[in-house]
Design a protein around this nucleic acid. Structure first.
Lengths: 210, 210, 210, 210
DNA sequence: GATTAAACGAGACGGTACGTCGGGTCTTATT
DNA sequence: AATAAGACCCGACGTACCGTCTCGTTTAATC
């Protein structure tokens, strides 16, 4: 186990990091990516810029941290009803994406911009470490969803002739594709279609062998 | 229709635009997005910044133009063998994405960055007009691919109980998802898996009713 | 003669430089060296920071330019009365120094600080080019004063057994010494003492041979 | 008188102050003023910044302390030969100044920067207490030199019609002037000229009345 | 051929934000 | 109570790049 290094010097202000993240998230969601400046975040958080930079060496790092924070606490249930569980999961994913997509925009309902989502992707693309980091975040969350599929496959609720990882990509991929590329809406009806498409050929979800 | 104003004054240098695009593309592919500054592009193209801005009002516009240029001439064939045609199409898409993903990087084969792809998405997200523009480019190309699916469906080579647009999303979405989000490789084996997944349940592609 | 290079590109705004210098001088004399920030100067001058930095690459460079500006237009007269002329000259020098010494200070009459004078010296010490520059400014002005002494020497109004350059140092050196080192006042009585000391042994200034 | 509080707690590390001064001096003389940051000094001295600030409240205070340290032990002799004594004294002053002027510079013999000397003056100008302090140091040393002149005057080795304080300024002032302002060298020949200038009109130093 | 209108090269300009540096203060645990 | 360590606040610095502007110069089309 890792030996906890003896605390030397003044310890970091645990609250400062929290306040920074909150300020950044608020600015991001309210005013959008462009409006988010480091100085402003530091101001809002009541923190010196140096304190911020000590934790996140770059604006991109900060942004990604904010997003990672927003990915937490997404509970995934395995009720045995694979279709219901998937619907639930995809709705959570879509909600998160839609929230970020619309960050900083008024009420213009017809907007098709990828908004903050694209900026995050770009940020991760610019820094290798951020890529690894955010992929880890996603991997952790995805692992649970993939587990869902795997368990469904085990009980025969899915066709067994396919890789659950690929199946997962085909469930989630279209959402990102629409958000980031085509700009088409990602709403509940669309999610149902996606699930239909992915599960087709599967036996009925509630199939309990007699 | 817009009356073409009678040509007065010095005509635009037809070659300038071309040289700008080339310079931009080279910088983008060789040195990566970060190295591409407007001043640098103008320099490389041997052109004044004014000349550049007269054609593209924004750096983002220029970038998107470069990418649109790279999307040209993707022939799509309908041989009747839907699996083969899809494979062909997806490989072209994947090749384009992989090229952009690796722009500006040496030979570090293990790179998982989304590279330029993400920057394009971000650029499109920042300007509504660019979004529309690039979506039009994609739509045009996609229309052909969707036509492929539709004709296959008509001849019964696909299950008819699903929307070909959704099916298309499930074919292409995963590619973008991997490129932009998970960073996983998008290679030929993966494409085969995707196609398998999407076509499963379909009758054999060459199914000729006895 | 130097061929005037053909003007290419937008010419520099002659007024901008002037406004910057004025703003800098005002800030310097009113608020003192510490209060003078580049951002503030640019603001006051109604100019972008880049415009300022295009002219003076460093805060130190700007400050020195300000001082050089203040050294202009110091008329030196040669009336034939060497004592009177010297008095006049030294008073001008002393006035300039005393003004800079007191820059940014209220009315605390007992102040002995070298104030801005020392900061200038330090700035010149930090950058070789500034040293050369400011020495050139001083040399130009000093040349006139030394000319004064030389002409007096020629007409026999001074002892001829000494180097006028050294004599000059002994006139001016004490002023700087007091300002920069001992902090003692440099007022009119002191100037008279200095001149007395330097001219002692000389024949009466108005000595016109019969 | 201030009651010395009974010693409680850990006593001050007597060596720390010494190590700090040495580190500061070394940095100053070797790398120049710019390279001297408080953090660096503390590092080099193997001391925490708190320890340093407990002794000197400001970087400027530390610098001045370093210089004061270097001014120690300048013996002044009164041999009765005023010219010889003055020469000796001025050489010591000049040596000190030249050492500081060249601090942090390689072997570029043609350098005319005032170097650290100007920084000291600036430091003293920024803090009233430092001004007083350093003036006291100088005053103590100068008093001896002025005593030299006074005793020479008493024995009639100097003209009596002038203030020895002013005479002193005219001896020392030029050195500082050259160092801080004109950048000209302050070498032995120059010192001789200065002394000649100041003593001219005086009777020969060894003049023993017949 | 003179005029004219727009494109062009060059580079200054306004503006905004970034990330860095250094000074000096504070908070822990340790001595 | 001093120390080591290092986090913290603050303020300014100099840089980078964007997109605009202002010159003087060139290039056709028009008069």
């Amino acid at each position: 186990m890792p030996e906890r290094a003896p605390s030397r010097g003044r310890p970091r202000d645990i609250d400062a990091g929290r306040r920074i993240l909150i300020a950044a998230r608020d600015l991001l969601l309210v005013d959008g990516y462009a409006a988010l400046s480091i100085d402003e975040v530091a101001d809002q958080a009541g923190v010196a810029k140096t304190t911020l930079y000590r934790r996140w060496p770059t604006k991109d790092h900060l942004i990604v941290a904010v997003v990672a924070l927003m990915q937490d606490d997404v509970p995934i249930l395995d009720t045995g009803d694979i279709r219901a569980d998937l619907t639930d999961y995809l709705r959570q994913v879509a909600d998160g994406l839609n929230t970020m997509r619309r960050a900083g925009l008024p009420e213009s309902a017809d907007d098709r911009s990828a908004g903050v989502v694209a900026e995050i992707a770009a940020a991760a693309a610019r820094h290798a470490d951020l890529g690894t980091l955010i992929r880890a975040v996603f991997a952790r969350r995805n692992a649970m969803a993939i587990g869902l599929l795997a368990s469904a496959a085990r009980r025969g609720a899915l066709r067994t002739d396919l890789d659950v990882a690929v199946l997962f990509d085909q469930l989630v991929g279209p959402l990102y594709y629409r958000i980031l590329v085509t700009g088409e809406p990602v709403d509940h009806p669309y999610l149902d279609l996606i699930i239909d498409g992915a599960l087709r050929g599967a036996r009925p979800s509630h199939a309990h062998p007699a």
